Simulated scan of single mutants.
Amino acid sequence: MAKVKYYYDSENLAYKKIKTRKRIKFGYAVLFLVASSLFGFLVFVLLINTSYFETPKDRLQAREIENLQLQYSILNKKMDEIDAVAEAIEDRDDNIYRVYFNKTEIPDSIRKSGFRDIKRYKDLEGYNNSKLVLTTTKRIDKLSKQLAVQSKSLDEILKLAGAKGNLLLAIPAIQPVQNENLRRVASGFGYRTDPFTKVRKMHNGMDFAANTGAPIYATGDGVVVRADNAASGFGNHIVIRHGFGYESLYAHLSKYNCKPGQRVKRGDIIGYVGSTGRSEGPHCHYEVHKDGQVVNPLNFYYGNISAVEYVAISHLANLENQSLD
Rank of each mutant, 00 (worst) to 15 (best):
Y310M: 14
I305V: 13
Q71R: 12
G165K: 15
K164S: 14
I270N: 14
E287A: 01
S248V: 12
V225C: 13
V288H: 06
Y100E: 10
N166Y: 12
A230F: 01
V30R: 12
K19G: 00
Y256A: 06
Y301I: 13
T197Y: 00
Y310Q: 15
K138H: 02
I269C: 05
G243D: 02
G205K: 00
V85W: 02
Y52D: 02
V224W: 11
M1A: 12
Q71V: 05
E11S: 02
M79V: 06
F101D: 04
F26Y: 10
A230L: 10
L253H: 07
I96Y: 03
E156F: 11
S37D: 07
N296L: 04
Q322A: 01
D123R: 14
K112A: 06
F189L: 01
S153L: 00
E180G: 03
V288P: 09
K159R: 15
I140L: 07
E247S: 03
R184Q: 15
N296M: 05
Y52F: 03
I96P: 02
R59W: 01
A35P: 13
F53V: 12
I89F: 03
A307T: 01
V45Q: 15
A148C: 05
Q150C: 01
G222P: 09
G233R: 03
P260Q: 09
Q69K: 11
H203L: 00
L33H: 02
I216A: 14
E287W: 00
Y15C: 04
D9R: 01
L319R: 13
N181R: 12
P172Q: 01
I216F: 13
E87I: 11
V239H: 11
K198A: 02
I157W: 04
P297M: 09
L249N: 06
Y52Q: 10
G126D: 06
D221N: 14
N299K: 12
P260S: 08
K25N: 10
F53R: 12
T197W: 05
A2M: 08
F244H: 08
V239E: 09
K3H: 10
P176Q: 01
S314P: 04
G220T: 03
G126E: 09
G277Y: 02
